[in-house]
Write a protein that binds this DNA or RNA. Structure first.
Lengths: 348, 348
DNA sequence: CAAGACAGTGTTACCGGAAACAAGAGTCTG
DNA sequence: CAGACTCTTGTTTCCGGTAACACTGTCTTG
């Protein structure tokens, strides 16, 4: 090999445009590759003089570690697979964003796969793909029944974690959102004199949707309000609109609690088209506080949820498992009631 | 090593819960590891009988390739780094979603990094991280000046591609959106009798924002309308609202063309609060057609953009480079005018 | 002052694949 | 029927790291 090369290549590794390896660095510094490796992993017992030579060589050659090689030997990678549902909504994408940032700060990269969280085949296909790319862990950024099941059945050989907004059903203690947030929201309506309320729910396969339904019902009962029903939605504005439009006869409620802002938006339009004024005739609330909610007509009273933090927590939980640290007690993230103009005193 | 193991481990590789390697498979099938490797890479010249044994062993051991090892030898990975700006908006996240899907179908995984596309430090930091994780290519899912510059300065050793909505400024032929879509939108306003229009633009560092401004101005001129100005926005509903609120005196225009739906939403609220009725007094249009746009009050006339396809195209362009294929001529994705109730005849 | 102990560094083996090369069994050809 | 050529399969080496172990000197210590 060396035969073809010009004689002046006395400091090999510099010349080819190929990335420098620790061997190149070692040769340049006049040490063994192992010394370089030691330095890179923060080993202390290196003589300052040697250390300087290595540092210089590293610098000079613009060394960048090859993570494929590293993960091949250590068996650990620095990637996390994240499954999230089709993010045409703000919530999920903010969660992903928060997760991505948290992962990055810990030196990990997030492999995000978006899929239809209710489609078992899609889930399995995605898992199949994801399991090939060696990952340090797998994360589901939202929780549906199908996803939970697939996760339980799947044979990851790495830690996996399903980030549920709360796991009331699983015996965990209820989330802040359902134990504090929604009661506050419903209480706000009660204080305005509303006695009959309606809920527009998310898809029942989502644990978040179920929790919100339960919390809504509990809160309504505690406030002495009567729930006039729970309509099915799918998180979209369209479903909120359709749900209201499908109602026949005069309204039996004076307030609507939608499980997210989009459905509230749809509900507002439907109610408006049916001739009701918001909030004079009907009050409407959402959950999430998407950035647009403040600019709805009327601006929406809603419950602000900190999605980014939710994503961050999910990643931290997973990383704790990956690195065999003690699990930090999953902090309950606060939600806050944002009162705008879509709620008002109940009509008598 | 073998000394410690029980004698009955005559088919090693099955037993430990560690993933099976091609060596395990080879031993199980009674062939050499190379035969297994050949089979896996689709080599034809394997005797059917041998092939069957390999297939069986693969199946039996639940073999899954170790992509770290593979990419170490081949020097190729099956991951794509994707940079996108903070996706609290539908457009970017749908682009990411489309890209993710396209990548997955091609056997790649997308490493998505979200960052502030206008913050040079954030960009460089992200690039630094991303370059360590060996990637097959790097993609920027939206295009800002900072991002473009960082890409040009960066020393990826792999293909990189900046997905610009269009690259009018770079001499490329204008995108469908600016050559057909926006003219159609503006033409729609013209046909309703509007003669004085206003534009609310996105941040000027975004090439998409600049293209939309240019296209708007061109289209207005061609329709014989007079542009009453271009207000600065940042894609958010808030910025649309603020832009309108900052105007003093009576309106000099009868129609507003916002560069995206969120800003249109903000503009609608601001105009409403200032006592104008939409569309009776002022018509408002958006661009993007986010799912909520149909449920605004009033439902928004807008230009539908196919974000998912935009993401897909970006990935395909990048993959073509990665795999040294001929670049498919970047297809121009159609946009379509969606007329709803936020536009109406100009007030005399 | 010999014998450990230890600090600092080098050597060798290994991770799981792929490429290059080698070799054995048939098959074909003259 | 021997030599050339194929077809199929096996061996060896390498990718770029890390881990385990081995080897030098110094420094203690009895």
């Amino acid at each position: 090999m060396e035969l073809d090369l010009p004689k002046d290549l006395e400091q090999p590794g510099l010349d080819p445009s190929k990335p420098a390896t620790i061997y190149d660095v070692a040769r340049f510094a006049g040490v063994s590759h192992q010394t370089v490796s030691r330095f890179l992993r923060g080993y202390e017992g290196i003589r300052p003089e040697t250390r300087d030579r290595v540092i210089n060589a590293l610098q000079e050659l613009g060394y960048r570690p090859n993570l494929a090689a590293r993960s091949l030997t250590t068996g650990r990678s620095h990637r996390i697979g994240a499954l999230t549902h089709e993010i045409d909504q703000v919530g999920p994408s903010k969660i992903a964003q928060g997760a991505s940032l948290a992962a990055r700060q810990a030196g990990y990269l997030l492999d995000i796969v978006t899929l239809d969280m209710s489609n078992r085949d899609a889930i399995n296909e995605a898992l199949e793909l994801i399991m090939q790319h060696d990952l340090a862990g797998v994360l589901a950024l939202s929780s549906t029944d199908e996803m939970t099941q697939a996760f339980e059945a799947a044979d990851f050989r790495v830690p996996a974690y399903v980030a549920a907004e709360s796991d009331d059903a699983r015996g965990g203690h209820p989330s802040e959102l359902s134990s504090v947030g929604l009661p506050a929201l419903v209480g706000h309506l009660a204080s305005l004199g509303h006695e009959r309320v309606l809920h527009i729910a998310g898809p029942t396969t989502y644990s978040a949707a179920r929790n919100r339904v339960r919390a809504y019902q509990r809160a309504a009962a505690e406030c002495g309000m009567s729930s006039q029903g729970v309509l099915d939605g799918d998180w979209s504005a369209k479903s909120g609109y359709d749900a209201i439009m499908a109602l026949s006869g005069p309204l039996t409620f004076t307030a609507v609690v939608a499980a997210n802002d989009q459905m509230a938006l749809g509900a507002i339009l439907a109610l408006t088209e049916r001739g009701y004024r918001i909030p004079d005739d009907v009050s409407v609330t959402g959950i999430d506080d998407i950035p647009e909610a403040a600019y709805f007509a009327p601006p929406l009273t809603t419950l602000r949820v900190d999605f980014a933090t939710q994503g961050r927590i999910a990643v931290e939980q997973l990383l704790a498992r990956i690195e065999h640290r003690v699990l930090p007690h999953s902090p309950s993230l606060p939600s806050s009631l944002i009162v705008r103009k879509s709620t008002g005193p109940a009509k008598r």
